[in-house]
Design a protein around this nucleic acid. Sequence first.
DNA 1: ACTCTAGCGGAGGCCAACCTCCGCTTCAAT
DNA 2: ATTGAAGCGGAGGTTGGCCTCCGCTAGAGT
Lengths: 192, 192
Amino acid sequence: MTATPYPVSEIVAARRPHRKDAARNFDALLDAAREAFAEHGADAALEDIARRAGVGIGTLYRNFPTRRDLFETVYADEVAALCEAAAEPTDREPWEALSAWLDRFAGYMVTKRAVREALNGESDIFQTCRESMYAAGGPLLERAQRAGAARTDMDFGDLLRLVAGIMATTFEDDAQRDRVLAIALDGVRTGR
Amino acid sequence: MTATPYPVSEIVAARRPHRKDAARNFDALLDAAREAFAEHGADAALEDIARRAGVGIGTLYRNFPTRRDLFETVYADEVAALCEAAAEPTDREPWEALSAWLDRFAGYMVTKRAVREALNGESDIFQTCRESMYAAGGPLLERAQRAGAARTDMDFGDLLRLVAGIMATTFEDDAQRDRVLAIALDGVRTGR
DNA sequence: ACTCTAGCGGAGGCCAACCTCCGCTTCAAT
DNA sequence: ATTGAAGCGGAGGTTGGCCTCCGCTAGAGT
């Protein structure tokens, strides 16, 4: 529970209202939106989100004047959590540490696909998210590369997209997804 | 131009009307839909598709009573073309032949993402498509495996999803996409 | 306790896309 | 050439999500 170590964490904090009831509604809306986007994709009905959160549609629009606003905030909130996960100190092997974080990243991406494609890269917030993400996860790859455990002709962006792409696909079952992800990561790993 | 070598080819052929004007409209609608789906995703407006095709909305609904019908037919049409590409005889090395076909597959998937996610696996036609696809492309992988050029602890389905997932993601530029795809395929390749 | 203001909620107008329906047109079989 | 049936198209009713607006509620400072 450290204080906003990444710029992306500020994005949500800055929007959160001060009054108690308003803050509660804000949180409820964010939760409801996350859930609805995961379930129905990017074009989930805003009225449904308000209903899930137990607030009026007016309250939703006050907090998030546009659909895009809501997307951005949900997304930033997720990314902030992910960054904090990467920052937690670990005593694991370089490859293990990287691979464990990628698993976590993969888990988030399963539900975040819809949001990502809706914002489609044309957002300021996107830039901030990317920076925070790189700051948080990049060192994990670099450490693995220095240890000779990961190929050096790729960068962290390549790696994220590789994993994100695989997670965005539907598989027959989780076993197949894991198998495919493992094969792809075999292309990344060196030594061993 | 051989006669419907794969079951999937029958799907479209069976729907195509016999009267000359009707057949022309059917083809125009399919083209327009393919284009619209690639451009606007799965929720392209049907009225817009009819307009592109230069036919009335009534004609669209007569040929494709539901949105799903249209999706399925467009998708089946694409898959049929892809299967024919795999069946063309080649004198290339096993790995080269596989890899070249996967490139073609990748190209199709770029635009087909929307359709795939809309049908979301819950379609009879999907099953037929998969069978034809496996019949067409599976031998390419098997040949590479027998030649010791591809790992044997994966099947053709794993491979397709690996490629499909990567192609479904957005990249900074085509170079990054190619780089990432190459890394992933390094995980598949053996020997060399 | 009092006040005053930030915040609440949902009725209702707007609009865009869906889909039906039916009078007109065009094909092709005889 | 005739004719009847297959096909055409788009007007318009229907649905459902979007967003505004304003009278009411309840938090927080004094």
